[in-house]
Design a protein around this nucleic acid. Sequence first.
DNA 1: CATGAATGAGGATTCATTCAT
DNA 2: CATGAATGAATCCTCATTCAT
Lengths: 198, 198, 198, 198
Amino acid sequence: MGGTTMDGTKRQRRGDTRQRIQDVALELFAEQGYEKTSLREIAERLDVTKAALYYHFKTKEEILVSIFEDLSRPMDELIEWGKAQPHTLETKQEVLRRYSEALAGATPLFRFMQENQATVRELSIGTQFKDRMLQMRDIIRDPDASLTDQVRCISALFTMHAGMFVLQEMEGDPSDKRKAVLEVAIDLVTQAHSGAPS
Amino acid sequence: MGGTTMDGTKRQRRGDTRQRIQDVALELFAEQGYEKTSLREIAERLDVTKAALYYHFKTKEEILVSIFEDLSRPMDELIEWGKAQPHTLETKQEVLRRYSEALAGATPLFRFMQENQATVRELSIGTQFKDRMLQMRDIIRDPDASLTDQVRCISALFTMHAGMFVLQEMEGDPSDKRKAVLEVAIDLVTQAHSGAPS
Amino acid sequence: MGGTTMDGTKRQRRGDTRQRIQDVALELFAEQGYEKTSLREIAERLDVTKAALYYHFKTKEEILVSIFEDLSRPMDELIEWGKAQPHTLETKQEVLRRYSEALAGATPLFRFMQENQATVRELSIGTQFKDRMLQMRDIIRDPDASLTDQVRCISALFTMHAGMFVLQEMEGDPSDKRKAVLEVAIDLVTQAHSGAPS
Amino acid sequence: MGGTTMDGTKRQRRGDTRQRIQDVALELFAEQGYEKTSLREIAERLDVTKAALYYHFKTKEEILVSIFEDLSRPMDELIEWGKAQPHTLETKQEVLRRYSEALAGATPLFRFMQENQATVRELSIGTQFKDRMLQMRDIIRDPDASLTDQVRCISALFTMHAGMFVLQEMEGDPSDKRKAVLEVAIDLVTQAHSGAPS
DNA sequence: CATGAATGAGGATTCATTCAT
DNA sequence: CATGAATGAATCCTCATTCAT
């Protein structure tokens, strides 16, 4: 597929239609939801025909899948890395720090995933995403800790997740807010670590 | 056609159709999402025609609105109560306790609201729900506290929210889990209260 | 039907629902057209249920039919009278004068008939109305006259018809306008009469 | 399904679907009225699916609008021409002559417009059509003339309009009838011109 | 690479009508 | 006299998808 001269940054300037489709699609998906975004709409924004989309993607779902796969790679790598580390507090804190960055790098996707859970659940990426969240959870929490401490860890994760979107509506410098969110999350994990097992 | 022999099973249900529509609709909305649930599906489950739904509700959206209004009243009352109290730590803790109960009493609705944010956003209830969340936020947080402490308060809210659904997938007694979630939330608010202003 | 004490003006003050239905229906039919006016709309305006309409009329069409029959009686009588007279110019002029009054007394109905010809054509009253128009034509025109003179007579009729509605949009006193229309119509018939046979 | 063996009958029709839709639609609209003609019916007659109609036209109304725009252009041009001429009797007579031709060239459309006034009134073309009629009126009549003479001019217009359809039911050669109608119309305008101002 | 034309399945909604109470 | 509840058939319209060119 896609025969071009190998100049190192191949496929950058040329058949960028595929990329543009993904960009527009993600924008619309995040804004209006997956179901309410029609291929017609995407095509119109790109000023191509619907049929053109089908040249690049077999189905509507495949567009979403491809976006997901491209953008969630950093998160995947983070999980891989986290699993290879010792389950120390320091690891967990570092995981949170890196997760904060991963989230920031793919805000629209995560916003989409969060706001379209019901839809995404029956799509192939639904399971994938859930699996990753569970893996994150298992890196962060300690199965032998008290229920409360486990909740703290999970809460740390959700705090970061939700923080991204809810805090957008508060005044203040975005990077300050991100720092605050991260701080609270790290705090939660740290507290969980110093708790007594149930 | 449609013929169900009058064996009492159907006879009993008379006059409660409106309620039954709401019940089935909420179940399906929560399970599959609002967009993916068709009125045909709801009607079929109730063994009535689509047109019957329109006797009781003017539009699909109105079904959802009516469910929302009925089920979110306790939350409304809680907010009313919370706003009338002094903004002390004790009030906040009590609000969280009551919120925990309100959530438990309307789990499917809250699950729906959380998993269908994208859809709900352009529906009339979207704004209402968001408003309520912001009011809860303003009861719980202290606008003069440090950013971090404000995040703690918001995190307390989301912990409870998310807790409801995410923890369903963990082993353990449901009421234990609810208690743990509440504890973490109260903890967060308490910590926020003892922090120094920024 | 409708047993009440015979006080001479029976059924005037009491079961006037039937009458009210007709009034509202005609108003709406004339305003929006027959197809676009739903029984729901009529019922709502009267603040009764749709089912109530069915107590008074068997079908939607019957409402229209009943209106038509009640309001077009004067026109019927005019035709009867006209047919019994000698076919002189004076008769025709008098017919036009009386027609002018008949039209004025049932403006909304005639407006409706004119603006809903396509719909009315397949309704029972369609044929009736057309028949009456043809009878009017045959009273007014002389089959032995030249084509042109026949057209003059028919034109006289249509002038009066259309005049009712089109002239509403011109400035000037309504009764002056009606007089002008009648004058032109009478003129046309008079001219037709003095013409030479083809 | 739908299977028509490729025997040429269908093959020929390619690319002209849009036109065929307009043709069939106008035919049905004129015959049964706009409301009573369903897209299903149009599609069935053309042996395509309803969705195919939507490929060519955005809405049912747009089908009608497109027909109207295509077919009423001659009338538009006539108005343009008429407005540019001096307001002499000769101009008016010529306008009527040309109008007669314009009407003949778009009989089904004008029949439709006349028989569906109630429907058309709330459609976008309703206003357009009315505007054109008023412009025609203003070309033909003299605002300083007596009311009666103004009615004569308007009557001339309606005579031509109505003539088209009513006369179809009279015996006689069509072109003879058209000539007679035109003669009466011209007569009316001519009389109006020789009248004394009110 | 992309379009023009079309489809089949399904969506929400509206309507005239019925009937037991 | 009138209503409450329901139906069956139809409506316009939208969508993801296909395929010959």
